[in-house]
Design a protein around this nucleic acid. Structure first.
Lengths: 206, 206
DNA sequence: TTGCAAAACGACACCGATGTCGATATAATA
DNA sequence: TATTATATCGACATCGGTGTCGTTTTGCAA
């Protein structure tokens, strides 16, 4: 009845495997990585790996769950900060605490997009894609809505529609950087231009 | 020495296979379709298919070549029309002759994005992705540049950077519609908002 | 017709990845 | 130290897809 191996140890092991798997996915992408790759990276045998995850999709879903969780946490945190400007909230959600776009995006973005797009005919995968999309949509819509109420944004466009364009643009940037490479896509410069766009379309009062 | 089967016949057969393959790719996506699927759809045997194409990648590249070709032709055509407004040129390049965004995108967009992103570590595939990107970039940059020269666009932003955001936004929209589905992404409404954005960022004089 | 080169066929061998399973190692408890 | 549940191992059978190859069919040309 009593456990022969501590629960913490098991969770630790699982976390280690996930950590290693993440690196493999970043390097090879979703489709190209095999369970063998993960086994090697995590120093675990075939049987050992299958003890924790029943297949590759299962592994990636675990990584996704974690991502979706922490991204929600982070933005919650941002929104709870005492800064009163919704415009800054928005920039923080997009570009982190220092509100400065840089040249690279989340390295897990491209394997994830790959996971979503190759599984677009699979209800299970699509569910993850939708969750991710609607999480982002809700967050941005809320912030814009709040900004309107507070009088900081004077736009007459629908908050939700602006939120959608934010997501589409961000996704497009991630996609282009994945298939073309960073240097060629000029993420930073595009982001700066996009901020300018947002500023005008939202009618930000300074 | 002389051919036993006319060259036209052979080209016709090849074209038929490609036609069928295109439908299969649209239905199953790139990764999920197998040579067997294509064989069945095109009513050709295994050996027969391999007579024309040496593998799946080869088939898809043929489709891509065709796409890249016709898209260049079409935009060439648009640019050669006698209409003097560069703003309208731009809208036509984006949304076709009637300049009205609709709710759906090219059905081959998602298999192509899949082809590009799953092959992002393969130089061969990346070359296709780059060609596609830079074709679009050149087109939009040229049009915007012309519009500036003619005085129709008064923006002080770099033409190339605006062109890049056009591509990123368009790609993002295609991606989102692929992984989420049309109805949920509201492509038309987003496009209308995007046109508004373009109008302001370009400083279009009416 | 007949001859023949190319096109079309489909059986087959191959391969790499998968998930299972019986054997073994491990570590907590008695 | 002995017991025992379970974590770990890796060999193995399986499977689906691939590309080849020897055979058959086709249709133009002599």
């Amino acid at each position: 009845m009593s456990p022969k191996v501590s629960k913490e140890h098991k969770e630790q092991r699982r976390a280690n495997i996930l950590e290693a798997a993440k690196d493999v996915f970043i390097e090879h992408g979703y489709e190209q990585t095999t369970m063998k790759h993960i086994m090697d990276a995590a120093n675990v045998s075939r049987g050992g790996l299958y003890q924790y995850f029943s297949n590759k999709e299962d592994v990636y879903e675990a990584i996704l769950e974690e991502m979706l969780g922490t991204s929600m946490d982070r933005t919650e945190e941002v929104l709870k900060s005492e800064d009163p400007s919704y415009w800054e909230y928005l920039l923080r959600c997009l570009y982190g605490p220092d509100m400065e776009p840089d040249n690279k995006m989340d390295p897990l973005a491209s394997p994830s997009l790959e996971f979503f797009i190759t599984g677009r005919n699979d209800p299970r995968r699509r569910k993850y894609a939708k969750t991710r999309y609607y999480n982002g949509l809700k967050l941005f819509t809320d912030v814009i809505e709040q900004g309107k109420i507070s009088g900081e944004f004077t736009t007459s466009f629908e908050s939700e529609m602006i939120a959608r364009t934010i997501i589409s643009f961000t996704d497009g940037l991630a996609l282009d950087q994945a298939i073309i490479t960073k240097e060629d896509v000029k993420i930073k410069e595009q982001s700066i231009l996009f901020i300018e766009y947002l500023r005008t379309i939202l009618g930000v009062k300074q």
